[in-house]
Amino acid sequence: MKNDIILAGVGGQGILSIAAAIGLAALENDLYFKQSEVHGMSQRGGDVYSHFRLSDKPVLSDLIPHGRANLIISVEPMESLRYLPWLSKHGWLVTNSNPYNNINDYPPVEEIISEIKKIKNHRIIDAEAIAKEAGSLKAVNMVMLGAASHYIDLNFSSLENSARSLFRNKGEEIIEINLKALRAGRDA
């Protein structure tokens, strides 16, 4: 078993929480993994990404080789396309449809969506609507994790456990919102 996952988004969108959730689930299942992330300057509204490598054998490189990722999970549509050089021919691209527009030359959303549709295996999710429905716009990241969970070799219940432990210091209400978001993402 080997899952090479790229997480993409904009600084502040919570992609490191997605990574942490997968990491905790991997730990629970005694799987090997390495997860490389970006800290520092680009976190100020720049593009951020994380390489997550999950396997039943020891993981060597911290970085996914080009053309080998099984999955891109993106919290932002344009960002999902930035990592296509890493996506394998049979890989899945799962992205939020709502743009995060903090630059002057942000392209028309239709153009982005039409590029995404050129990828054979893609899922486009209105994660904002689902997160809102679950109780908080901030839970967009958990919606995306739920939507991508079909392509990750982990039990969904392990991901639920991770969400519980990630938000355990935030109180029951926040835990429930995030679990709801995770499940609604899975069913989307």
Binding site: S42, G45, D47, P65, M78, L87, S88, P107
Partner: peptide
């Protein structure tokens, strides 16, 4: 990175699709 090392070893380097032109730079900002 793995690709640079593959090339140095004379091994085939895999590559996905190129980044489409529609993707713009998103530099850090205030």
């Amino acid at each position: 990175n793995p690709a640079i090392v593959a090339k140095a070893l004379g091994m085939p380097v895999s590559h996905g699709k190129n980044v489409p032109e529609v993707v713009k730079m998103r530099p850090p900002s205030f």
